Structure formats: structure tokens, C-alpha cells
Simulated scan of single mutants.
Amino acid sequence: MHEIDKVIKAHKSVVDISDAGISIMALCFWFIIGIVLFIHIIKDRKTYKVSGFLLRILILILIILINTYLFNKISFYNLSISEDKWKTEYLKPYISSRPIHKELVLDLSQSFKKDDKIINVIYLENNQPKVHKIRMKVKDKNKKEKIIVMKVLIKNDAKDKNHLSYRTIRQSISSKYNNKVFYEPVLHISQDYKVIK
């Protein structure tokens, strides 16, 4: 199994857990209804006609099938994984294994245009770094120039040319963690540049 498949499968477990509370409540509800119906059938069995008795038995069988389905559904939940655990044990190692993309920054500014579309970014650390919204003109590896706007961590450590580094994923995991998001972007600028904080 590819590494991304493991990450997606673990994320599916995390998403399924959000269903667990509703499933457990539904199981309790149908279990109580089943017990009440069973007691009612036993207690009043001599007062029913055969058709009424059979109808109640069929309803009880249906309730038992619903409870069996819900119990099986709950037993397949992986309750040992939380979203934080998924991020640290699956997502972070996967993102760290992805290659770092570097794009040359030709120009940058903190003034924006109305039609600027902000690129989604995700930092995986629990304590979010101080990021700045920056508009950049970049040149990608195909020598194509484009304007991008994003919230980015800025480091004054560029040796020669300003550049943007980030990681991407090969395949979307969910609507939040998808292949259009920039993960851990860092704008490396020289000491000459000043950013308004």
C-alpha cells in the first residue's frame, strides 16, 4: 500500500469516528425500543389476535436487525485514532517525505488587489507560526511567471535570491487537505527586505 493510501485510510477512520456518537445513540434508542416491545409482547401475549402477535414479532425482528447493523458499524470504528494523532503519525511524515518545491520570487508586496485569490496554506505544527499575507510574483521551474497571494512564514535567510519553498501532496485526502494546498510554505528573503509586522 502506498504511503498516501495509508494516510487516506487513516483519515477515513478519523472522519468515521465523527459518526460514532450518533451511531451509539441510535443503538441505545433502538435497544430500549426493542426491550420495551419485547416486554409488551410477553406481558400482553394472550390479548392479541394471531395477526397482531405476528406483526409485533416482525417489528421486534426488524428492531433486532437494526441493532445488529448498528453494533457491527460501531465495532468497525477505529476509536484509537484522533485527528491530532492522525496529523502527527500519518500526515506529518507523509508531507515531510514529499519533495520541496522552490520558486524564485521576483517581486513581493503587502498591498493587494480586489481580485487576488488567496492560496490555501496549512502549517502542521500545533503552535502556528507568525505568518504574513504576501502578494508575490514568482517564476516556477518551467520559467513561467505568475502572481500568487498567500499567508506565509517569512525567514530572512536567503543567501542570494529570494525564493518560496513549500510542499504539495500527490492526491487529495479531503476537501481541506487537498493537492491545491501549499503545505509549510516559507518565504526566504534576504536581510535587505523589511516586512511590516
Results as ranks from 00 to 15, higher is better:
residue 3 E to K: 03
residue 7 V to K: 12
residue 11 H to L: 10
residue 13 S to N: 15
residue 17 I to E: 01
residue 18 S to L: 15
residue 26 A to I: 03
residue 28 C to E: 06
residue 34 G to Q: 06
residue 35 I to L: 07
residue 36 V to L: 14
residue 37 L to Y: 10
residue 38 F to V: 01
residue 39 I to M: 14
residue 45 R to K: 06
residue 46 K to N: 11
residue 46 K to E: 14
residue 50 V to G: 10
residue 52 G to V: 03
residue 53 F to R: 12
residue 53 F to K: 11
residue 55 L to A: 08
residue 55 L to T: 13
residue 56 R to Y: 12
residue 56 R to C: 13
residue 60 L to D: 01
residue 60 L to K: 12
residue 65 L to F: 11
residue 66 I to L: 02
residue 70 L to C: 04
residue 71 F to Y: 07
residue 75 S to A: 12
residue 81 I to P: 09
residue 85 K to Y: 01
residue 86 W to K: 00
residue 95 I to H: 07
residue 96 S to T: 04
residue 100 I to V: 14
residue 105 V to N: 06
residue 107 D to C: 03
residue 109 S to E: 04
residue 119 I to T: 08
residue 124 L to W: 00
residue 129 P to A: 06
residue 132 H to L: 01
residue 134 I to D: 11
residue 134 I to Q: 04
residue 138 V to F: 02
residue 141 K to F: 04
residue 148 I to P: 02
residue 151 K to W: 12
residue 153 L to D: 03
residue 153 L to Y: 08
residue 155 K to W: 05
residue 158 A to Y: 05
residue 163 H to S: 09
residue 163 H to D: 06
residue 164 L to V: 15
residue 165 S to I: 04
residue 168 T to S: 13
residue 169 I to T: 09
residue 169 I to Y: 15
residue 169 I to A: 15
residue 180 K to C: 04
residue 184 E to Y: 06
residue 184 E to I: 02
residue 188 H to E: 13
residue 192 D to E: 05
residue 196 I to E: 14
residue 197 K to G: 02
